[in-house]
C-alpha cells in the first residue's frame, strides 16, 4: 500500500513528506508505548501512535520505521517535526482514533507486524 493510499484512507494531513507519497508500505503497527515499539517493531513499518513527543520520532528512527501516522488529530511537537525532517521520515495526522485507523488500514490489506513474526 502506498503512502498516498494510506493518506486517502485515513483522510490524513501530511505534516512532512508530501514528495514521498508514492513509497510503498508493507506492514504497520500501532502503539503509544515506545517500549513495545522498540521490542516488537520491524524495519520498514508504518507506525501509528498517539504519542506526540519527540520520542515517537526518535523511536521510529531507531527501528527504521518508514513513516508515522499520529491518530486522533494529534501532531508531534516541534522537536519531533524537526527530527522527522532531519531523518526524512514522512509524518501524517489523521482524525481517526487508533482502533479505527488501524482497522481501516488492515481491512484494506495492510497487515500488522505480527504477520511478519508468524511467517518467520
Amino acid at each position: 500500500m502506498t503512502l498516498k493510499e494510506i493518506k486517502k484512507l485515513l483522510q490524513a494531513e501530511v505534516i512532512y513528506g508530501i514528495d514521498r507519497l508514492e513509497e510503498e508500505i508493507q506492514w504497520a503497527g500501532g502503539s503509544d508505548l515506545m517500549s513495545d515499539v522498540l521490542a516488537f517493531g520491524k524495519p520498514g513499518i508504518l507506525l501509528l501512535t498517539g504519542l506526540t513527543n519527540a520520542q515517537s520520532v526518535r523511536t521510529a528512527n531507531i527501528i527504521d520505521a518508514k513513516a508515522i501516522v499520529y491518530v486522533r488529530g494529534k501532531k508531534p511537537d516541534k522537536e519531533g517535526i524537526k527530527l522527522a525532517r532531519e531523518k526524512e521520515i514522512p509524518i501524517f495526522s489523521t482524525k481517526y482514533m487508533m482502533y479505527t485507523a488501524c482497522g481501516l488500514l488492515f481491512s484494506h490489506g495492510l497487515p500488522g507486524v505480527s504477520k511478519i513474526q508468524n511467517n518467520k
Binding site: L33, M34, S35, D36, V37, L38, A39, L51, N53
Partner: peptide, 15 residues
C-alpha cells in the same frame, strides 16, 4: 507518559 517504563528495556537489550 514518555512512552516508556513497560519493563521491556533490559530484556530487549539482551535480545
Amino acid at each position: 507518559e514518555m512512552g516508556f517504563g513497560a519493563g521491556l528495556g533490559l530484556p530487549n537489550i539482551k535480545k
